[in-house]
Write a protein that binds this DNA or RNA. Structure first.
Length: 271
DNA sequence: ACTTCGACCTGTTGGC
DNA sequence: TGCCAACAGGTCGAAG
């Protein structure tokens, strides 16, 4: 489910029910995720109050009295509230029972996600320290991107999806932003003009903002923390539309593979 | 330093 | 209908 807009949607959905509450009991049924869930997580969290819920890249961070809870949804993860009597499914790996009586559930069939505890400061943690700027912040601008792209032979789509350059842009929105900007995904990053980077930065921000406003993109069964589906799927211009006509010029959208990920683009609109 | 590729998992889909 | 290969929203870390 998760690219930045989906994670942001989840954060916004769960935040009102978490902030100010305390963990009463944490149940870990499957600790084998991307990294092992700490064996002492239930002990570490018990009795702790959630001071705030924030997002950094695609990580959900719960600031606690002492330390932080970090959750990543990987490819197939979900984080959502369930009624306390909800049956436990095969992939329901962690339940967080709050003092309010509500249960926050972490479900992840592919187990590419993560549930970790961070001691103290978040920025120093190895998973977060190397991350590039947030795409919707002013730190992500054309000058910055031009500087980072200088001399790079990597295709622009791969550069966009590199979290050290800019976070939160996954396969869907990389495809969409490049279409919107009229740039071929396989163009060498170092050979794109500053003017085109100006346009690309604007498009990345636009597509992400629009997706957040629509509650994320629902593929499969993504639902935000409030249980509502995302409505951005109907806005997608190229992702998942290979072989179909370009919505701007009607020519057939092409599909290639880059870094084992599917790339869809219009050979006429994108140069 | 930069780029590519395998790896981690399960579920779904499409071809034969 | 069944079986098997390919593919799916991510991203780390090793190899080249």
């Amino acid at each position: 489910m998760p690219e930045l807009p989906e994670v942001e949607t989840v954060c916004r959905g769960i935040r009102p029910h978490l902030e100010g509450k305390r963990f009463k009991q944490v149940t870990v049924r499957q600790s084998s995720l991307r990294w092992p869930v700490p064996a002492d997580l239930p002990t570490l969290l018990k009795g702790q109050r959630v001071k705030s819920i924030t997002r950094r890249a695609k990580y959900v961070l719960a600031e606690l009295d002492e330390g932080h809870l970090l959750v990543h949804l990987g490819m197939s993860g979900r984080l959502y509230f369930v009624p306390s009597n909800t049956p436990v499914g095969k992939h329901d790996h962690v339940d967080f029972l709050l003092d309010s009586g509500q249960v926050l559930r972490y479900t992840d069939p592919r187990r590419f996600g993560a549930v970790l505890f961070l001691e103290g400061d978040t920025t120093s943690h190895s998973l977060l320290s190397h991350l590039g700027p947030e795409p919707l912040s002013s730190d992500f601008n054309a000058e910055y991107l031009v500087a980072r792209a200088k001399g790079r032979s990597m295709p622009i789509k791969s550069l966009l999806m590199d979290g050290r350059i800019v976070v939160g842009v996954g396969n869907i929105y990389a495809n969409e932003a490049l279409f919107m900007a009229g740039i071929r995904p396989d163009r060498m990053a170092g050979k794109i003009s500053p003017v085109r980077y100006e346009r690309l930065v604007t498009c990345v921000k636009q597509v992400l903002q629009k997706a957040i406003a629509e509650g994320g993109t629902t593929l499969k069964d993504f639902v935000g923390g409030d249980g509502k589906p995302g409505y951005f799927k109907q806005e997608l211009q190229v992702y998942g539309r290979a072989g179909e006509p370009c919505l701007k010029c009607q020519s057939t959208l092409r599909e290639i593979r880059q870094a084992q990920r599917s790339t869809v683009f219009c050979g006429r609109c994108q140069r």
